[in-house]
Amino acid sequence: MRILHVDASASDTETSHTRRLSSELVERLIAANPRATVVYRDVATNQLPHVDMTIRQAWTPENSTDPKLAGTINRAKELVDELKEADVVVVGSPMYNFSVPSTLKAWIDHVSIAGQTFSYTAEGPQGLLTSKVYLVLSSGGIYSQGPFAANDYLSTYLQAIFRFLGVKDVEVIRAEGVAYGPEQDQAAMASAADRIETLTDTA
């Protein structure tokens, strides 16, 4: 099993809900699959540049040997290869202003490449990934249900983008309402940990 673990929280491990939970999930996956290998990418600490025209140029065959684009080409291929080669992808992301952190969006923009992770066909776009994806998410409020559910552009977007890229098996793990006080914070983390245990028992 090859695992790609992506963390996007701007907080450190001690204070980040998603860093702690995504690490727990990866540890349990490794325990169930001792020969698993892990590629870890922290897009908050090691931020990627926002996408510009050099990214598109990097994937154009006639530019493949352009020394001015060598760094961009190498980075682009490394990111895409990490994703394409992964059997399991674990993404840890908090909700920032109802959506994904900009650092995670930058990673998505680097790996969502026509001809690499999806293709255009006469019937429309076709995803090329076959991995399993775990989305480990946290939010200060509660967005999976209730009056603010319509504001959830975190889980809905991430599920949409991975399904666009061909992933059929997407599991969502949530720690919600963590800003509602210590008791709710603890309950949210316990609920997320229980879901991780349930999912990895059958992984």
Rank of each mutant, 00 (worst) to 15 (best):
Y96F: 14
V39I: 06
S139K: 07
R19L: 15
F148Y: 03
V6I: 14
A203I: 04
L79V: 12
H110Q: 12
V170Y: 02
I113N: 07
V167F: 08
R28A: 15
D7M: 15
I3Y: 10
L21R: 06
P125I: 09
Y143G: 10
S102E: 02
G141E: 06
S155E: 15
V136R: 11
R2K: 03
Q186S: 08
S138R: 11
N151H: 13
A114Y: 01
A160D: 11
Q186W: 00
S11N: 09
E197F: 03
G166Y: 02
S155D: 15
T13Q: 13
D109H: 05
D87S: 03
S119Q: 07
V170H: 03
S138M: 11
L4E: 11
H5P: 14
S131V: 04
Q159I: 12
V100T: 15
S112G: 14
V90Q: 00
E62V: 08
A31G: 08
S9A: 07
D152A: 12
H110D: 06
I3T: 13
S112M: 13
Y153V: 02
V133H: 10
A160R: 06
S191H: 06
S11Q: 06
T198P: 10
Y143R: 03
S16P: 10
W107I: 14
L104H: 11
V167G: 05
D7R: 09
N151Q: 00
P182Y: 12
I196N: 04
I142R: 06
E82H: 08
S138C: 15
Y120V: 12
L83Q: 14
V88F: 09
E176C: 10
V38C: 05
A149G: 07
L129E: 01
N97K: 02
H5L: 14
S112N: 14
G92N: 14
I196G: 07
A10M: 08
Q116T: 12
E183R: 03
M189E: 13
I173G: 00
S64L: 15
D12H: 04
S144D: 09
F118Q: 07
V136G: 07
T202W: 00
D194V: 04
F162N: 10
A32Y: 00
H17D: 08
R35M: 10
L128D: 08
L29H: 02
L79K: 05
E24C: 01
Y143F: 15
A114W: 09
V80K: 10
T117H: 14
T54Y: 00
Q184D: 12
L158E: 09
I55N: 00
S11L: 10
E62N: 04
G146A: 10
A31R: 11
F162C: 02
V133E: 11
Y120L: 13
P34I: 10
R163S: 14
S102L: 06
T121Q: 01
Q145R: 04
Q47H: 09
S155F: 14
I113F: 01
Y134E: 01
T72L: 11
R174F: 04
L79P: 09
T117D: 15
S191E: 08
I196K: 01
D169C: 06
S64E: 13
G166H: 09
A122C: 07
S64T: 15
S23Q: 03
T200P: 11
F164Y: 15
A44D: 05
E197T: 15
R2S: 12
A122Y: 00
A10G: 04
